[in-house]
Design a protein around this nucleic acid. Structure first.
Lengths: 218, 218
DNA sequence: AATAAACACAAACAAATGTTTGTTTAGGCT
DNA sequence: AGCCTAAACAAACATTTGTTTGTGTTTATT
């Protein structure tokens, strides 16, 4: 005899396309991604340690136990989110490094992509930036190395930009972290459908960072 | 009969001043502050949700239960840390607002104090910035309001600075959050005794933010 | 229609959580 | 010396934690 609440045919969270409308797709390959997406949002809101699998299950519309058909562990979820983001960052750096352009242009382009990833995948980026400390040990070190790789590459662009006379001779570390941090408020602040468009945001942000806030004394 | 590990006369973490050297001070009034300081460090490292009272107790050199003689709850610890920081920020804003100076000077001074608080109380500032979401409800709203008050005040300085012709006419929100975020890497990066002094850091940071990174096209 | 795989749930698990209780010890006071 | 209170610990508490197991249901494929 079935229990009082009827078992969930295809998760109450998914559209009520009851069988016939199903496309040629496999089974429900979107369930895993749904879990990951919702986890990113939850972890961003509450932090990894303060988020329980039951909380997550409730959001996904699944019993906590059911999610283990799609993911291996809570830790694995965090790993996937963090490395998906860091891999993207590294890829962007590598691409920009190989561009034919001035250092100032390269830096601008890297920042631009940085911001774009944030406006597109805000929750995941936020988790990768703030919750990576909760990674468990083999992966924790890997993540730190990826981070370092990105920072070194970015710092090299700044250093060369200064050497080439394109940039002011500030301390390279200060410049690096100022740029990287300055860009991070986007993840806290940006919401699609604000009165400021993503494009305007990019423009103003780059103006501030590269041209400075103070009016040039004409 | 005492248990195998002798009970802790004045906490093994405190210096072994065994009785006679005690000053005229009350009893052990520093235990509470020790707990709060260590909590700030722990919460910064591991996050509030991933830090247990037993972890904290181990660091302080106290049984978890013993700490309840000094604090009311784990939540209270977070509250104290967060509001001590936000109160300081608000106080600094109020002081700077009342200074006789140009808007650019006021902004510079506010940033300077901001950075100084970070280099002095890094752990607490970090917790207030990153773990405040874990505050429970009456205080959570209060904290958000304090935050908003600070942001509004800061934004007003920028707005007036632009109106007075001292600053470039960028979007005020973008400028505000860029400045506030740019300053936050200090909490992640600064450690006393690095090759970069706090003073040099301040100088380079302000140069970058106010004068920009790009070399003025002479 | 039958079969096998995918998947959802209920129930349970051990371990870890924040906190309370009861008791003992330590140190300053008269 | 003797008291009183602050403060430490041990033991236990009720939950909540992440995860496993067993069982049933759904779905794609034959």
């Amino acid at each position: 005899m079935p229990p009082k609440t009827a078992p969930n045919p295809a998760s109450t969270a998914t559209p009520p396309a009851t069988g016939t409308v199903r496309l040629v797709k496999k089974r429900r390959p979107q369930q895993r991604q749904l879990i990951l997406d919702e986890a990113a949002r939850l972890f961003k809101e509450r932090g990894f340690g303060s988020s329980s699998m039951r909380d997550l299950g409730a959001r996904v519309g699944l019993d906590a136990a059911s999610m283990y058909n799609h993911i291996k562990s809570k830790d694995e979820i965090l790993e996937i989110i963090c490395f998906q983001v860091s891999d993207t960052y590294i890829a962007q750096l590598t691409e920009v490094e190989q561009m034919e352009a001035t250092y100032l242009e390269k830096i601008t382009e890297l920042l631009r992509r940085h911001v774009r990833l944030m406006t597109k995948d805000g929750a995941a980026v936020s988790v990768a930036n703030n919750e990576w400390k909760a990674l468990t040990e083999p992966r924790l070190t890997e993540f730190k190395q990826a981070r370092k790789r990105y920072e070194k590459g970015f710092a090299a662009l700044i250093e060369q930009g200064i050497a080439a006379g394109e940039l002011q001779a500030v301390n390279v570390s200060v410049a690096l972290f100022t740029l990287l941090s300055a860009v991070r408020w986007v993840e806290l602040w940006y919401r699609p459908g604000r009165n400021l468009s993503a494009a305007d945001l990019e423009a103003d942000l780059l103006t501030m960072l590269l041209d400075g806030l103070k009016k040039p004394t004409a």
